[in-house]
Design a protein around this nucleic acid. Structure first.
Lengths: 193, 193
DNA sequence: GCTAACTACCTATCGACATAGTTAGTTGCG
DNA sequence: CGCAACTAACTATGTCGATAGGTAGTTAGC
């Protein structure tokens, strides 16, 4: 359900090829919704069949062509409708907390290692989000600047503010995970001496 | 990958039927790893075929039977091995933050409603986790008590401590989400006056 | 003794997703 | 000019997971 809308979110700004989208999914949108190209290409075809997109073959180099998709009126309507519709919350599937609940089955050192990996993972994300936030604030984010170039002056502040809001949320998540895992390390020490 | 291990986590404590497991997935383990019965029954068959479990038909009422599964040595080995192996972190797929990143496309009131729903959702979870934590601390958790009845005295404290640790982590997550969504409500007000 | 609720188990379908490939044209650089 | 890196697109396989059913026996209460 989310993948088509993530694609629409990018395509309402400017037409793109599947390859362009695949690259964006490695950077910007991919921060909140990952998708490999093997999912993107079929999704684009389905969306074209459903009338959300239209594709046209445009020349690329002397002999090659590439297929560029743009959003139809129906696609734009579907996207804004999705944006105005409340989410349905999926039930939790959280491998890290699943394992935490049965940590007495792990060797203390293995348990520590996994909590340290949890910290490292989220510390890496945190660093990434921090940089992204800085780029948005400094106006040096090429991602955001391309987006703003297609946005009316009235909406530019909103666009920027909601992006910052999103990344600040991701930072809070990462910080919470790190703090939790650190408490876990202390707990393991307390239980094994 | 996680479902078989979530099932093993329950079955290493005591043998159960698919139906028992399905009920546990509505309550205890389901808090961190949800699975519908339509996934559980085939998973049990696959695990029996792989030698992780053995099932036996036991009588149920005058005519009925039910199939109870217990963990084999191989299953126990697979579970502890999983518990000692570091997780591989999946890339993010977070519909709430995906929508937040494009919130300028939503009507302000629809955006507010969704953030309020986000708060309500996580406040509900928080309440649930708080109660669970209280039950664990008071020793009134039937889930945990059944578990502890099958646990050596030496491991009882660990089991209890890691359960508490897990639910405290879930509480931190919920609190972070609520705080974030509240900041979002303030932001929407600031952007629309 | 009937019926509702519960226990027990199972199937089918469809899209989501991971993983691992393949093919072909283009561009840049040494 | 030749090769590496990149652009572009697609396929195939297998499991995961959501959703929506179906069947049959059991228990409890009126």
């Amino acid at each position: 359900m989310s993948l088509p809308n993530a694609l629409l979110a990018l395509l309402v700004v400017e037409p793109m090829t599947g390859y362009d989208l695949h690259k964006k999914f490695e950077s910007s949108v991919g921060h909140v919704w990952h998708a490999p190209d093997s999912q993107i290409y079929p999704a684009l075809k389905r969306m074209e069949a459903n009338g959300l997109l239209e594709g046209e073959d445009i020349p690329w180099g002397p002999r090659g062509t590439k297929r560029q998709y743009h959003v139809t009126a129906a696609g734009r309507e579907a996207f804004t409708s999705w944006m105005n519709t409340p989410l349905e919350y999926a039930r939790t599937r959280d491998p890290a907390h699943l394992k935490a609940a049965y940590l007495e089955w792990a060797e203390p050192e293995a348990a520590r290692e996994q909590l340290r990996a949890h910290i490292d993972h989220h510390a890496g994300l945190l660093e990434q989000w921090r940089e992204t936030v800085k780029e948005i604030e400094d106006g040096t984010s090429t991602m955001l600047n391309r987006r703003l170039a297609h946005t009316s002056a009235a909406d530019q502040e909103k666009t920027r503010a909601y992006k910052l809001f999103t990344y600040e949320g991701l930072m809070s998540q990462a910080e919470a995970e790190i703090a939790w895992a650190k408490r876990g390390l202390t707990l393991i020490d307390r239980l094994n001496d």
